[in-house]
Amino acid sequence: MSRRLHPAVAGAQPFQLAERDPDAPLFGSEEGRERLEAILSRYPTRRAALLPLLGYAQELHGWISTGDMEEIAEVLELTPAYVWSVASFYTMYNKHPAGRHMIQVCTNISCHLNGAPRVLEEFLEQTGTVEGETTEDGRFTVLEAECLGACGFATAVQINDAYHENVTPEKVAEILASLDGPESS
């Protein structure tokens, strides 16, 4: 799926996707090298490419492994410890493999006022998980999220890179059914 990205947006690709290839090399492929060069060309320092590259690793693999961090550290001339320090600060980087559908339910104030806690409960109940846990078939991970910036459309739920708005407990079953089954990947 080689696609040449404009350098201006090469480091800004959605990285919470259902489709991913856990075995894809980061910089061993032509696409990876192109992406790296495109990103590096946009900043005066190599270090500034860190967040874009962490995003790229997650876009590819679905999460960020210690191996990914070591590889990124090497190309950016940073220590792996530094990369870990930064990666662990940001909540969107998955430090463990996540379900194919990462369901993030906003429970912040505006959604809270509109029944978000019940929406979260419903997701957990229907997937049979506790918060942060992945279903055994690897399909779902349900998380409580901080404000998703869709307060006028409460309750806001983000599933991978898509927003679902005005979600009520009644809509949960329908939303889950619309996501792919256990056999597809």
Binding site: A12, L51, Y90, M92
Partner: peptide
């Protein structure tokens, strides 16, 4: 003038 889109990763 150049312009680059840079995305965050979950930090208010």
């Amino acid at each position: 003038c150049d312009l680059t889109v840079h995305i965050g990763a979950g930090a208010y």
